[in-house]
Amino acid sequence: MARDATARSGGRGRGGGDAATYELDEIDEKIIATLRQSGRIANRDLARIVDVNEATVRTRLRRLEESDSVRVVAMRDLAAMGFECLAAVGIQVKGRSAADVGHDLAQLDEVVTVNVSIGTHDVEAQVVARDLADLDRLLTHVIAHVPGVEKIVPGLALKVLKYTPDWAPL
């Protein structure tokens, strides 16, 4: 999710992951901010905006990619790809660990996000489906039968006003 319009937090959080092996400096931050606006911008134009030479941009981009700090990718619109339904599904687990159930759910293509959660439910998942019949199949006939799933509490997104995940585990 977009915590910030720029990648400011990237420089601050040297957290535990593999990607955070070096500090992003101001040039990296500018490159990332520009790529957020215009992902397929030519290196030459990127260099002009960030005010460094093209070789520097190339080097920086390679380093950002190789360290898995940032990836520039195409994101697909759910509706345009034929998925009319997006549901947030809370799951209560019994007899198995929430993480194990989460890992099983993660195997399903229609499950786009899975977290072990703190709150009323043990697992929170986001799922997509082509239509209501497809959603019924997924919830009632597939997810309900994953071992350890005791109760499913789904909410269907009526209208998605914003869905721009700019952060992700890479």
Binding site: A7, S9, G10, G15, G16, G17, D18, A19, A20, I32, L35, R36, S38, G39, R40, D68, S69, V70, R71, V72, V73, A74, M75, T164, P165, D166, W167, A168, P169, L170
Partner: peptide, 8 residues
């Protein structure tokens, strides 16, 4: 097209 930053 989006630039995705690693949550790590």
């Amino acid at each position: 097209v989006a630039a995705i930053t690693n949550t790590s």
